[in-house]
């Protein structure tokens, strides 16, 4: 008699336990380092007098200043504070696109200048100041980068405007 022994068919399965272990530990690590509020920073330094030997510049300093009040932003240049342009405040919003456009124009003529002085009035809200700082530091996404000549006559290009923000009357 033939005894047909039916052998049990064992289906080979992948052992997922080590993978699960690794994923679990990885998840705990990421959970500890996760930040659900996207935090960034904008740097600014108190104005300081630095003793640096400077070569006598042929061009006068730009001395770019923004006077921020509730009605407008006044762009001033030069040591005498000559008014370059006035950007109006329309329906409680500053026209930041125009501000950015004017600053791009100034930057293209003064590629080596990096600093800007902000002079807001005491009642201007912090949120508006941050928006202005954004417009002052770099060009908006989608806008063409700025091209111009540096002080040596060399053509350079940049997407940064005036990164060094100084608030006047801090010290």
């Amino acid at each position: 008699m033939n005894n047909i022994h039916k052998r049990k068919k064992y289906i080979k399965r992948l052992n997922l336990i080590p993978i699960l272990d690794a994923v679990f530990i990885f998840i705990f690590f990421l959970l500890m380092s996760a930040q659900f509020v996207d935090i960034h920073e904008i740097g600014s330094d108190a104005p300081a007098i630095s003793l640096i030997e400077s070569i006598k510049e042929k061009r006068p300093p730009l001395n770019l200043v923004l006077d921020i009040n509730s009605k407008s932003i006044v762009i001033k240049t030069g040591v005498n504070g000559h008014i370059y342009k006035t950007i109006p405040n329309i329906s409680n919003r500053y026209d930041l696109k125009s501000l950015s456009k004017e600053l791009r124009s100034i930057k293209s003529k003064n590629m080596e200048e990096d600093s800007i002085i902000l002079r807001p009035k005491s009642k201007i809200s912090y949120e508006k100041i941050v928006n202005i700082m954004d417009s002052v530091r770099s060009i908006e996404p989608g806008i063409q980068i700025i091209r111009g000549k540096d002080k040596f006559g060399k053509f350079i290009k940049t997407d940064k405007l005036f990164k060094q923000i100084i608030f006047e009357t801090i010290i």
Partner: peptide, 21 residues
């Protein structure tokens, strides 16, 4: 903001980092 910066600078912290979202 101005007074916080002024106070910080006088206390020996002149490098301000404004934390934003």
């Amino acid at each position: 903001l101005s007074r916080v910066m002024h106070t910080s600078a006088l206390a020996g912290f002149p490098e301000f980092k404004f934390i934003v979202q």
